[in-house]
Each structure stands twice: as structure tokens, then as C-alpha cells.
Nucleic acid binder design. Structure first.
Lengths: 110, 110
DNA sequence: AAGCGTTGTTTCCTGCAAGATATAACGAAA
DNA sequence: TTTCGTTATATCTTGCAGGAAACAACGCTT
């Protein structure tokens, strides 16, 4: 009958640190090896992707992303071990939240 | 350090049934007794408030809102007992969700 | 039957988020 | 030192969500 949905996000000092969109970009970076390729693979403008990554860097307690500008291939960006840990943590919490909410709605038996 | 936030909403057959914005409108209607006054009290355009109420009606399993058009005072709208029940149910789930997420984040001890 | 303040609906307008575009800086490799 | 594909950033443009405004319909009260 009814179903329940949610969006969660984690904030740091200056704004949003992680959310679903940022997670998507991070995962695409892990696959593609660069921000520009990641943006392209997601059908997202480079600017938007860059803004997301910028906000991640501004709000992270520890480095999540290492960017290398210039060099043979032009550079690229990679995700730190801390970043990988945060991705999986976020996805776990998100999954748990969904399960929790489904349970909550079921208990109401509307 | 980090803190976690969320938005939840309940969907029906055709779209969103309840969310934070719709709850706000419903509660304002309960106080004000009419949709137009409720919109004004929230600093929201009548059209936006009407759209929210319309989507509630389209997706509710049972009547939530009774509108009376015309009459001495011009009419007005009131919330059914079912509507009141849904409001408190939503707010409970929302509160529980916040607590749950805070707990989840704390368990990570970042 | 006239007046009133609602609900309900349409049309027009505008601000702004987001895309598109352009360009500088970078540094390894050849 | 030239080339290359990045990162980083500024500027311009545009689509559209949302507000503003206008108006019809309604029905109780007087």
C-alpha cells in the first residue's frame, strides 16, 4: 500500500560531506581513475562533479581524495583508504536505515 | 565532528503521500482552519500548498482532508481523525529514524 | 439576490540551479 | 620544449520549478 523512502547525508563543519550523489561520484572515480572520466561515465557535467568532490574535501576529517594535476596522462584522482572506508560505512548505514524504516512502517500496519 | 541528517517520505500509488513539507501544511491547517490561511502562516504560496494537499489526497488510502468550499466564512478545510493519526505516525517514525541514524554513526566512532 | 472569503485552476513571469563553454595551470614523457 | 589530458576556475546561457496574479465557482449568511 504505502511504502517509505529516505535520503540520508553526513555533514561536516562547512556543509555536506557525504550523500548519495557524492558516493556515486567517488565510486565512479575509483573505477575510472579520474574525475573528468568519472563525470562523463555518469552523464554529469564536470563542474557538478567537481563541486561535489570539492565539498567532500572541505568537510572531511581526513583526506578522502588525492588529486594529481599534470603529468604524463594529465593527472587523475584516487580515493584514499579512509575514503573507501567511508563509502562502505555510508552504504551500510543507508541500507540499515532502509530496513529500519520498512520495519517501522510495517509495525503501523496501516 | 560529523553529524548525520535524513529526510523520509511515504509514497502511495501515484506519488508522494507524506513528507516533512506536507506535514507542516497539515499542521498549519489544523491551527488555521483553512488552506489559504495555512499557506499565509507558512509564508508559502497558495498554489504550492494546494499542490501539496492535492498530492496527499491523491495518494491517501483513506480521507485525510475535508474541504468545504463556499459558505458563510467562504469555506475551509479540516483534518480527519485518520489524518491526525498519520501526522503523529509520520513524526514518530521520523524521530525514530533520527535516533537510529545517530546511533549508527556513533557506532562507527569516526 | 448580493456579499463574502474560501477552494480550485489557469496563465504569466522570474530567479536561480545547472549545463555549456572557454581557458589557465600543471607536470611527466618523448 | 612541445605535447597531452588532466585539474581548477570563471563566465555565459538556458530550462524549469515555483511564485504572482487573476479569475471562476461555490454556498452560507444577511
Amino acid at each position: 500500500m504505502y511504502h517509505i523512502k529516505s535520503r540520508i547525508w553526513i555533514e561536516g563543519e562547512e556543509g555536506v560531506f557525504l550523500g548519495e550523489g557524492r558516493i556515486k561520484v567517488l565510486k565512479a572515480i575509483m573505477v575510472e581513475g579520474s574525475l573528468s572520466k568519472a563525470a562523463k561515465s555518469l552523464g554529469m557535467s564536470y563542474k557538478k562533479a567537481w563541486n561535489l568532490v570539492d565539498s567532500i574535501n572541505k568537510n572531511a576529517s581526513n583526506p578522502v581524495i588525492i588529486t594529481n594535476t599534470g603529468g604524463s596522462g594529465g593527472g587523475g584522482t584516487e580515493i584514499t583508504a579512509y575514503g573507501v572506508k567511508m563509502i562502505t560505512a555510508f552504504e551500510n548505514i543507508n541500507k540499515n536505515c532502509w530496513d529500519f524504516l520498512d520495519q517501522q512502517l510495517k509495525e503501523l500496519q496501516l
